[in-house]
Design a protein around this nucleic acid. Structure first.
Lengths: 204, 204
DNA sequence: CATAACTCGTACATTGATGTACGACTTCTA
DNA sequence: TAGAAGTCGTACATCAATGTACGAGTTATG
């Protein structure tokens, strides 16, 4: 499963094809971000390419969705890797959220598309890298004593993710402006992760 | 749209039919909670009823989904209405979450089913009642001074909802046990809504 | 008990998307 | 510039689900 579009595969592809693939993936990303159920036909059209060309590169729709997810998450992880995570963990987190926010916001629909076609486990794998970054930061914040320690990290990471997702959804539905969402998300996550101010005995 | 299965409609239906409808809705609820894409055929079978009978009562699949949502949300709201919301808002909230948690947990898939078939606006309407309850409680907590006031209530309500959704998802995927989820959810929401302990000037 | 309401099987029309087959035409690339 | 690689249209084969049509058999209910 998944033949040609692997970066690791020998580059026995014509420059031509390379370009087509890029256009297709990018178009797919656009389409699926708008409508999780966009058909291969829609996507091909949006890419300015025949449907057959598309199937020449991606044997199945799932293959395509997977490629798109990989692409989007690579972008995301790239954006995250550019964030300065040194210094005060609280502030670092703010910066991190600011960056992930935009990527996240435009990929909500994409995610649900993936959930419809890819096995849940695969999706998890793909998210591993970015999740890792968040997790590490939280861990550091804990060591610094500025983040709470009374809940498993896994849950905290997930909670942050779900909140981001929610904010993205609200934005998409135009019940919130993007700037407002950004503000609320950081404030919310901040108080979610903050060490409880109440050190009365519950040190466990 | 939506003919027969209205409680308000004159009861010109045979007891027989009434029973069938009940069985169908209940079966649909079970099926859709397991698989958001369950077909009308699956549902009819699960209800121990012919597919045609089903279509006799619900002209379209959407009609059925809608009925199921109404049913589930009525149940939910009923459960909530039984919760004692007097006294300390923090504690009341804990109780409220405890109750909504179980309903929520079993209806996650159902929600995504609805999102696939019903217009977003309709879903919102249906959720209005339970959302109202949460909102009122939050409002009271604010007046008491125990809940934060630096974010719009709408956002807080939504945030809580998304967190619940997330916890439900984690449970479904068996990455968390139900009891643990329950504990984490209350703790998380508690610190999300709590008034910031840091009243240094930012009174606005 | 008579009739209207309900059940439900089989069969079919429809729709919408996926994926395949074939073949002619174009464009890289060696 | 020859031939391999890629493009892409038309057409077709599936497939799965939705919803309709017809009609014979059941069962509530007045």
């Amino acid at each position: 499963m998944g033949d040609m579009p692997n970066a690791a595969t020998g580059p026995r592809r014509r420059a031509d094809a390379e370009r087509s693939i890029a256009r297709i993936v990018s178009a797919a990303r656009r389409c699926l971000s708008g409508d999780p159920n966009a058909s291969t036909d829609d996507i091909a059209k949006a890419a300015g390419v025949g449907r057959m060309t598309l199937y020449g590169h991606f044997h199945t729709r799932a293959d395509l969705v997977e490629a798109v997810m990989v692409d989007a998450l690579r972008d995301g992880d790239e954006a995250l890797s550019a964030v300065d995570l040194t210094g005060n963990a609280q502030d670092a987190l703010d910066r991190l959220l600011d960056s992930s926010w935009s990527v996240m916001a435009e990929s909500t629909a994409l995610l649900t598309a993936a959930q419809g076609t890819l096995p849940a486990e695969r999706i998890r794998q793909l998210h591993a890298a970015p999740a890792q970054r968040v997790e590490q930061l939280i861990r550091r914040g804990r060591d610094e004593g500025s983040f709470r320690t009374d809940m498993p990290i896994t849950w905290l990471v997930n909670a942050v993710q779900y909140l981001l997702h929610g904010a993205a959804e609200e934005t998409r539905a135009e019940r919130m402006r993007t700037e407002e969402a950004s503000r609320l998300i950081t404030a919310t996550v901040r108080s979610l992760l903050a060490a409880p101010p109440d050190p009365d005995g519950t040190v466990r």
